[in-house]
Design a protein around this nucleic acid. Structure first.
Length: 445
RNA sequence: GUGGCUGUAGCUCAGUUGGUUAGAGCGCCGGAUUGUGGUUCCGGAGGUCGGGGGUUCGAGCCCCCUCAGCCACCCCA
């Protein structure tokens, strides 16, 4: 019989125990941050009707959606993000749930794009959103969650880049070229990478964009100084456009709120050139970069999207939220080397010493677990040295060694695998003394 | 999706201008007088050289295709 080569698809990965433990630990922290802000968990199907998914994020994202026909002839697609399914979910259930709806969802999404480090075709997003309010308080809290998430995950050096879609849209409207917003945004996004000269050249190839327009755009992105100075200078660029002014007001209110909440100003970066490719954003937008590894891209992005649900319902459902890319963040943290090695095994290891005493070990292991300890019993009565070697490698803290000698005398050896010290503990009262001793030793670590 | 670089044991890599049974270190498994690991010594297993096809008397080394990883564009978590 010929063997099938075991392999995984491009951009799809297996998760081994070591990195999965890290991942689950990070996700636990993410959950507790979400819950500390009053967000509740929901889940939605991986597969949606294609029509739900298409046309929400823009042309590029449509091309990246895994779409196919199911066995019933329905056009379906794997979700590209968690925000669009949320819009559908909200339109369907908001009557039962009421507003504002604060929910989070940690789940996989799929994108058929080319891979790179920290860019996969299947990856998990930790998405949180507030639906049903236009209040800037929701925007402020969104940014605060982003901030607290990164701190909780052990990242201290990061910057949250903030901007507001209305500023640029308003500026373009005042120039009469708002219908060119998408290509202009795309071009502007490259500023940091290609420089002013190349960007200008490309900008001028866009229909109806002249040098005066480019000059205005550059003025906007080139403003430097303190946050207050930036706002003051920016306001002077366009004075006759309500959208532009509204965008600035919203952004200013957002930043003000963050400062009031105690976020260090060094972690906020007012970046009028960030655009965000997703078409559905309408107001404040966020991108988060790690100082140590900006090249891996944004690890947590989002923004306000006030019209996303309008294709599903006539009820007005404005929303704001963001997504933490846990896989990308994990890749970044591994790259930077900030992750501490984790203990893989249970804390207690029971040596399968004497084959004739198997039942005693099973009983002992079981009783310790019932007492709340994490215990692993070795599966084969191999030589004790080998078992200890295994226990050591797996990171168990204490080994319980009990051959016929110990068991006949009614005690058990407790060996500290870090120091090598071993104590005899009585088993005369069942396992009570053993449990107490182990708990004492563990809490003393 | 487009372009560039890479692909040899679990991991990190050697492999001379194509030439007999493809190597090292680490790891893994086992042993060093009967029941104690993380240091030492000895031994062992493990590779269709990413996969497929071609050129050749002969290919890990050359050519084509394909798959995957990394990088850039694009886009994004």
């Amino acid at each position: 019989m010929s063997l099938i080569t075991p392999r995984t698809l491009k951009g799809f990965r297996d998760h081994l125990p070591e990195s999965m433990l890290q991942r689950e630990q990070l996700i636990d922290k993410v959950r507790s941050v979400f819950q500390s802000y009053g967000f509740s968990p929901i889940d939605t199907p991986a597969l949606e009707y294609e029509e739900i998914l298409l046309g929400k994020g823009g042309e590029e994202t449509d091309k990246q959606i895994y779409a196919f026909e199911d066995h019933g002839g329905r056009r379906v697609g794997l979700r590209f993000d968690l925000t669009v399914p949320l819009a559908r979910f909200s339109a369907q259930h908001i009557g039962a749930l009421g507003t504002p709806l604060k929910r989070y969802q940690i789940a996989n999404v799929w994108r058929g794009e080319n891979t790179q480090k920290g860019r996969y075709r299947e990856f998990a997003q930790c998405d949180f959103d507030t639906i049903g309010t236009k209040s800037m308080v929701a925007d402020i809290e969104t940014a605060l969650v982003i901030h607290d998430l990164l701190v909780a995950l052990g990242c201290e050096d990061f910057k949250i880049h903030v901007n507001n879609r209305k500023i640029l849209t308003g500026l373009l409207a005042s120039l009469g070229i708002e219908d060119q917003t998408v290509p202009i945004l795309r071009c502007l996004d490259k500023l940091a990478k290609v420089g002013i000269k190349d960007m200008t050249t490309e900008m001028l190839t866009i229909d109806r964009v002249d040098e005066a327009a480019v000059a205005s755009l550059l003025t906007l992105t080139e403003i430097r100084g303190s946050i207050a100075d930036i706002f003051k200078s920016t306001r002077r660029i366009v004075t006759n456009n309500a959208l532009f002014t509204a965008g600035l007001d919203e952004l200013e209110e957002l930043i003000h709120g963050l400062i009031v909440a105690g976020v260090p100003e060094s972690r906020i970066h007012l970046d009028l050139s960030i655009a965000r490719g997703l078409d559905y954003y309408t107001g404040n937008i966020f991108e988060t970069f790690l100082e140590a590894l900006p090249a891996i891209g944004s690890v947590c992005s989002g923004g306000r999207y006030d019209q996303l649900a309008e294709t599903y319902t006539k009820t007005e459902l404005p929303g704001v939220g963001a997504s933490l890319g846990i896989d990308r963040l994990l890749a970044a943290m591994q790259e930077i080397g900030v992750l501490k090695p984790m203990q893989m095994g249970a804390e207690i290891f029971v040596v399968f010493f004497d084959p004739d005493r198997r039942d005693d070990y099973i009983r002992m292991t079981r009783q310790l677990r019932l007492a709340g300890l994490r215990v692993e019993m070795y599966s084969d009565p191999k030589k004790i040295g080998q078992q200890l070697k295994y226990a050591n490698r797996r990171g168990h803290r204490f080994a319980l060694i009990a051959g016929s000698n110990e068991l006949d005398q009614g005690h058990c050896q407790v060996k500290d695998l870090n120091t090598g010290d071993a104590d005899n503990v009585s088993l005369h009262d069942g396992f009570g003394t053993l449990v107490d001793t182990l708990k004492e030793k563990l809490s003393a670590l």
